[in-house]
Protein backbone atom coordinates (compact mmCIF):
# COMPACT_ATOMS: atom_id res chain seq x y z
CA UNK A 1 0.00 0.00 0.00
CA UNK A 2 2.81 2.41 0.84
CA UNK A 3 5.13 1.22 -1.94
CA UNK A 4 4.87 4.59 -3.69
CA UNK A 5 6.53 6.19 -0.64
CA UNK A 6 9.69 4.08 -0.93
CA UNK A 7 11.71 6.37 -3.23
CA UNK A 8 11.28 9.23 -0.73
CA UNK A 9 13.31 7.29 1.85
CA UNK A 10 16.28 7.89 -0.44
CA UNK A 11 17.98 11.08 0.82
CA UNK A 12 18.75 12.55 -2.59
CA UNK A 13 15.18 12.15 -3.86
CA UNK A 14 13.72 13.49 -0.62
CA UNK A 15 16.08 16.48 -0.72
CA UNK A 16 14.85 17.55 -4.15
CA UNK A 17 11.20 17.05 -3.17
CA UNK A 18 11.64 19.06 0.04
CA UNK A 19 13.23 21.93 -1.89
CA UNK A 20 10.22 22.02 -4.21
CA UNK A 21 7.76 22.09 -1.29
CA UNK A 22 9.80 24.63 0.67
CA UNK A 23 9.78 27.10 -2.24
CA UNK A 24 5.99 26.99 -2.33
CA UNK A 25 5.21 26.70 1.37
CA UNK A 26 7.53 29.42 2.70
CA UNK A 27 6.01 32.41 0.82
CA UNK A 28 2.49 30.95 1.07
CA UNK A 29 2.73 30.59 4.86
CA UNK A 30 3.93 34.19 5.25
CA UNK A 31 1.06 35.53 3.12
CA UNK A 32 -1.55 33.43 4.98
CA UNK A 33 -0.16 34.43 8.40
CA UNK A 34 -0.12 38.14 7.45
CA UNK A 35 -3.71 37.91 6.19
CA UNK A 36 -4.91 36.14 9.33
CA UNK A 37 -3.15 38.42 11.81
CA UNK A 38 -4.08 41.69 10.09
CA UNK A 39 -7.70 40.55 9.81
CA UNK A 40 -7.73 39.35 13.41
CA UNK A 41 -5.99 42.42 14.82
CA UNK A 42 -7.93 45.15 13.08
CA UNK A 43 -10.98 43.89 11.21
CA UNK A 44 -12.94 41.83 13.71
CA UNK A 45 -15.22 43.22 16.41
CA UNK A 46 -13.98 43.25 20.03
CA UNK A 47 -15.14 40.43 22.34
CA UNK A 48 -18.16 41.32 24.48
CA UNK A 49 -16.43 40.12 27.65
CA UNK A 50 -12.70 40.30 26.99
CA UNK A 51 -12.60 43.43 24.81
CA UNK A 52 -9.57 43.67 22.53
CA UNK A 53 -7.41 41.37 24.68
CA UNK A 54 -9.06 38.40 22.95
CA UNK A 55 -7.07 39.22 19.78
CA UNK A 56 -4.18 37.29 21.37
CA UNK A 57 -6.18 34.20 20.35
CA UNK A 58 -4.82 34.55 16.80
CA UNK A 59 -1.34 33.47 17.89
CA UNK A 60 -2.15 31.60 21.09
CA UNK A 61 -4.59 29.02 19.72
CA UNK A 62 -2.75 28.18 16.45
CA UNK A 63 0.56 27.85 18.33
CA UNK A 64 -1.07 25.66 21.00
CA UNK A 65 -2.91 23.42 18.51
CA UNK A 66 0.21 22.94 16.39
CA UNK A 67 2.49 22.45 19.37
CA UNK A 68 0.56 19.19 19.75
CA UNK A 69 0.25 18.61 16.00
CA UNK A 70 3.99 19.06 15.53
CA UNK A 71 4.60 16.62 18.37
CA UNK A 72 2.30 14.07 16.71
CA UNK A 73 4.23 14.36 13.44
CA UNK A 74 7.54 14.03 15.27
CA UNK A 75 6.24 10.91 17.04
CA UNK A 76 5.11 9.41 13.70
CA UNK A 77 8.60 10.01 12.29
CA UNK A 78 10.09 8.43 15.44
CA UNK A 79 7.82 5.40 15.12
CA UNK A 80 8.81 4.92 11.46
CA UNK A 81 12.47 5.30 12.41
CA UNK A 82 12.20 2.72 15.19
CA UNK A 83 10.09 0.12 13.39
CA UNK A 84 11.30 0.31 9.79
CA UNK A 85 14.77 1.81 10.44
CA UNK A 86 14.22 4.60 7.89
CA UNK A 87 17.15 6.97 8.38
CA UNK A 88 15.46 9.99 6.79
CA UNK A 89 12.62 9.57 9.32
CA UNK A 90 15.26 9.49 12.06
CA UNK A 91 16.73 12.79 10.82
CA UNK A 92 13.23 14.31 10.67
CA UNK A 93 12.92 14.00 14.47
CA UNK A 94 15.83 16.38 15.04
CA UNK A 95 14.58 18.70 12.30
CA UNK A 96 11.06 18.94 13.77
CA UNK A 97 11.78 19.11 17.54
CA UNK A 98 13.03 22.75 17.63
CA UNK A 99 9.97 23.90 15.66
CA UNK A 100 7.71 22.22 18.21
CA UNK A 101 9.68 23.75 21.07
CA UNK A 102 9.24 27.25 19.61
CA UNK A 103 5.50 26.71 18.98
CA UNK A 104 5.06 25.46 22.56
CA UNK A 105 7.03 28.41 23.90
CA UNK A 106 4.80 30.81 21.93
CA UNK A 107 1.66 29.10 23.28
CA UNK A 108 2.92 29.42 26.86
CA UNK A 109 4.21 32.97 26.42
CA UNK A 110 1.07 34.36 24.77
CA UNK A 111 -1.03 32.44 27.29
CA UNK A 112 0.78 34.23 30.10
CA UNK A 113 0.33 37.61 28.41
CA UNK A 114 -3.38 36.83 28.01
CA UNK A 115 -3.77 35.42 31.52
CA UNK A 116 -2.40 38.53 33.21
CA UNK A 117 -5.19 40.92 32.13
CA UNK A 118 -7.99 38.26 32.14
CA UNK A 119 -7.18 36.03 35.12
CA UNK A 120 -5.02 38.47 37.06
CA UNK A 121 -1.98 36.21 36.95
CA UNK A 122 0.79 35.34 34.48
CA UNK A 123 0.88 31.70 35.54
CA UNK A 124 -1.01 29.12 37.62
CA UNK A 125 -0.16 25.43 38.15
CA UNK A 126 -3.36 24.51 36.38
CA UNK A 127 -3.63 21.13 34.55
CA UNK A 128 -3.69 22.65 31.05
CA UNK A 129 -0.76 24.98 31.64
CA UNK A 130 1.31 22.36 33.45
CA UNK A 131 0.76 19.64 30.81
CA UNK A 132 1.69 22.13 28.07
CA UNK A 133 4.87 22.96 30.00
CA UNK A 134 5.66 19.23 30.10
CA UNK A 135 5.26 19.21 26.31
CA UNK A 136 7.99 21.87 26.12
CA UNK A 137 10.24 19.70 28.28
CA UNK A 138 9.52 16.70 26.02
CA UNK A 139 10.66 18.66 22.95
CA UNK A 140 13.76 19.89 24.78
CA UNK A 141 14.38 16.35 26.08
CA UNK A 142 14.28 14.88 22.56
CA UNK A 143 16.73 17.56 21.38
CA UNK A 144 19.05 16.97 24.34
CA UNK A 145 18.98 13.15 24.10
CA UNK A 146 20.07 13.15 20.46
CA UNK A 147 23.36 14.74 21.41
CA UNK A 148 23.75 13.13 24.84
CA UNK A 149 25.65 10.01 23.71
CA UNK A 150 29.16 9.63 22.33
CA UNK A 151 27.66 7.25 19.79
CA UNK A 152 25.29 9.25 17.61
CA UNK A 153 23.07 6.28 16.74
CA UNK A 154 22.41 5.49 20.39
CA UNK A 155 21.32 9.07 20.96
CA UNK A 156 19.08 8.98 17.90
CA UNK A 157 17.38 5.82 19.14
CA UNK A 158 16.91 7.16 22.67
CA UNK A 159 15.37 10.37 21.29
CA UNK A 160 13.00 8.36 19.09
CA UNK A 161 11.85 6.23 22.04
CA UNK A 162 11.22 9.33 24.17
CA UNK A 163 9.28 10.96 21.31
CA UNK A 164 7.00 7.92 20.95
CA UNK A 165 6.44 7.46 24.68
CA UNK A 166 5.72 11.18 25.12
CA UNK A 167 2.61 10.86 22.93
CA UNK A 168 0.75 9.95 26.13
CA UNK A 169 0.93 13.65 27.03
CA UNK A 170 -1.17 14.73 24.01
CA UNK A 171 -4.57 13.43 25.20
CA UNK A 172 -3.70 14.67 28.68
CA UNK A 173 -3.24 18.20 27.33
CA UNK A 174 -6.39 18.04 25.22
CA UNK A 175 -8.69 16.64 27.92
CA UNK A 176 -7.04 18.42 30.86
CA UNK A 177 -9.76 21.09 30.74
CA UNK A 178 -12.44 18.38 31.12
CA UNK A 179 -10.76 15.96 33.51
CA UNK A 180 -9.67 18.60 36.01
CA UNK A 181 -11.05 21.83 37.32
CA UNK A 182 -8.90 24.29 35.41
CA UNK A 183 -8.65 28.05 35.25
CA UNK A 184 -8.13 27.56 31.53
CA UNK A 185 -11.37 27.53 29.55
CA UNK A 186 -12.72 24.49 27.69
CA UNK A 187 -12.46 23.79 23.97
CA UNK A 188 -13.95 26.39 21.62
CA UNK A 189 -13.25 24.91 18.18
CA UNK A 190 -11.43 21.57 18.67
CA UNK A 191 -14.53 19.59 19.57
CA UNK A 192 -17.16 17.48 17.79
CA UNK A 193 -19.78 20.20 17.77
CA UNK A 194 -20.43 23.57 16.23
CA UNK A 195 -17.63 25.99 17.27
CA UNK A 196 -18.83 28.36 19.99
CA UNK A 197 -17.54 31.36 18.10
CA UNK A 198 -19.16 33.82 15.71
CA UNK A 199 -18.10 33.33 12.04
CA UNK A 200 -16.83 36.94 11.87
CA UNK A 201 -14.26 36.02 14.52
CA UNK A 202 -13.80 32.37 13.54
CA UNK A 203 -12.52 32.93 9.99
CA UNK A 204 -9.36 34.91 10.80
CA UNK A 205 -8.57 32.38 13.54
CA UNK A 206 -8.91 29.44 11.11
CA UNK A 207 -6.66 31.29 8.63
CA UNK A 208 -4.03 31.74 11.36
CA UNK A 209 -4.26 28.04 12.25
CA UNK A 210 -3.70 27.20 8.56
CA UNK A 211 -0.79 29.67 8.48
CA UNK A 212 0.96 28.02 11.43
CA UNK A 213 0.51 24.61 9.74
CA UNK A 214 2.02 25.87 6.47
CA UNK A 215 4.91 27.50 8.33
CA UNK A 216 5.56 24.23 10.15
CA UNK A 217 5.72 22.49 6.77
CA UNK A 218 8.05 25.10 5.30
CA UNK A 219 10.42 25.08 8.29
CA UNK A 220 10.46 21.27 8.35
CA UNK A 221 11.49 21.22 4.67
CA UNK A 222 14.30 23.69 5.33
CA UNK A 223 15.57 21.97 8.48
CA UNK A 224 15.31 18.43 7.13
CA UNK A 225 17.27 19.50 4.04
CA UNK A 226 20.05 20.73 6.31
CA UNK A 227 19.99 17.44 8.22
CA UNK A 228 20.19 15.44 4.98
CA UNK A 229 23.19 17.51 3.82
CA UNK A 230 24.96 17.04 7.17
CA UNK A 231 24.43 13.28 7.25
CA UNK A 232 25.29 12.76 3.58
CA UNK A 233 28.21 15.21 3.48
CA UNK A 234 30.58 12.66 1.97
CA UNK A 235 28.29 11.70 -0.92
CA UNK A 236 29.14 12.93 -4.42
CA UNK A 237 25.69 14.49 -4.94
CA UNK A 238 26.08 16.64 -1.81
CA UNK A 239 29.55 17.77 -2.92
CA UNK A 240 28.09 18.72 -6.27
CA UNK A 241 25.22 20.60 -4.60
CA UNK A 242 27.65 22.50 -2.36
CA UNK A 243 29.70 23.46 -5.42
CA UNK A 244 26.61 24.67 -7.26
CA UNK A 245 25.52 26.76 -4.27
CA UNK A 246 28.95 28.32 -3.97
CA UNK A 247 29.09 29.05 -7.71
CA UNK A 248 25.66 30.67 -7.60
CA UNK A 249 26.93 33.01 -4.89
CA UNK A 250 30.00 34.19 -6.83
Amino acid sequence: MFKWLDPYAKPQVLFATLLWWQRGLMPLSIVVLLLGTIWGLGFTPADYQQGDSYRIIHVHVPAAIWSMGVYAWMAIAAFIALVWQVKTAQWAIGAIAPIGAVYTLIALFTGAAWGKPMWGTWWVWDARLTSELILLFLFLGVMALQNAFADRQTGDKAAAVLAVVGVVNLPIIHYSVEWWNTLHQGATITKFAKPSMDPSMLWPLLICILGFALLFGALTCLRLRTAILQHEAHRPWVRQYVEEQQDAKL
Binding site: D52, I56, V59, A113
Partner: peptide
Protein backbone atom coordinates in the same frame (compact mmCIF):
# COMPACT_ATOMS: atom_id res chain seq x y z
CA UNK B 1 -0.48 42.53 26.38
CA UNK B 2 -1.64 42.24 22.77
CA UNK B 3 1.55 43.72 21.27
CA UNK B 4 3.72 41.78 23.71
CA UNK B 5 2.10 38.55 22.49
CA UNK B 6 2.36 39.34 18.79
CA UNK B 7 5.84 40.86 19.08
CA UNK B 8 7.19 37.93 21.08
CA UNK B 9 5.67 35.39 18.69
Amino acid sequence: FVWLSFGGS
